[in-house]
Write a protein that binds this DNA or RNA. Structure first.
Lengths: 114, 114
DNA sequence: ACAACTGTTCAACAGTTCTTGAAATTAGGA
DNA sequence: TCCTAATTTCAAGAACTGTTGAACAGTTGT
């Protein structure tokens, strides 16, 4: 039962770092087509090996996936994992006392409907 | 420097730990009336001083606030900070390429409407 | 085969986080 | 006032994180 919470903690932790959050943002706005590791490194001004370590954390969290294209490795977001994470956070709120979460109803009309 | 991103990283980090995420969940379902530090410690089976350190992290992140009631200190969630955090995460997605985020539209109809 | 290009892995180090026992702080009751 | 209850603060240690230079690995073009 608490395996879900483990996964949520891992994903929150993956995003709880400046460089990785920036990577995530870039990948989010790039959409399914993704971005190569090298381009991310250049865009963000991060050393390739440092970035590689961060990409590894994001990958292991399940928020990001990778594929090879020639010499490049293209990273992209796993949208289902993102929704899972956001739902996990928001349901914390609405599961208990929905009336206490009225201010959140605009953020998650689905989870808070009721 | 992006101060909003700093705050988001801090808040994600505050929740990226088992005990603190459990505390957050408890406080979320307790709503505005909150829970005393002692009761949280008993409910979760955490040493009082350990819990105090975690509550301090949550407080400094702005996700949680405290007030004294007799000898007890009552902690409760700051809902506006929670919405801010969720919005910050979701907007990452919808701000860039909204069409890429169709799968998320159920989660945040507000941010993704467009 | 070779060299150039793109990324990853490794070992090591500084810095941070989590937990704990002991001491300190604040409030209520006899 | 003295005693007890509820929490926090402090110092120390083990465990984990982020970064770096150097070495390694896969791909392309010549």
């Amino acid at each position: 039962m608490d395996e879900n919470q483990d996964i949520l903690v891992t994903r929150l932790g993956a995003l709880a770092q400046q460089t990785r959050l920036s990577v995530f943002r870039s990948l989010m706005s790039a959409g399914p087509q993704g971005i190569s590791a090298g381009k991310i490194a250049r865009d963000l001004g991060v050393a390739p090996n440092t970035l590689s370590a961060h990409l590894n954390v994001l990958s292991r969290s399940g928020l990001v996936t990778q594929r090879r294209d020639g010499r490049s490795i293209i990273y992209s977001v796993v949208l289902s994992a993102v929704t899972e994470m956001v739902d996990g956070l928001v349901n914390d709120c609405c599961g208990g006392h929905p009336e206490a979460c009225a201010p959140l109803s605009g953020v998650s009309s689905q989870a808070c409907a009721g």
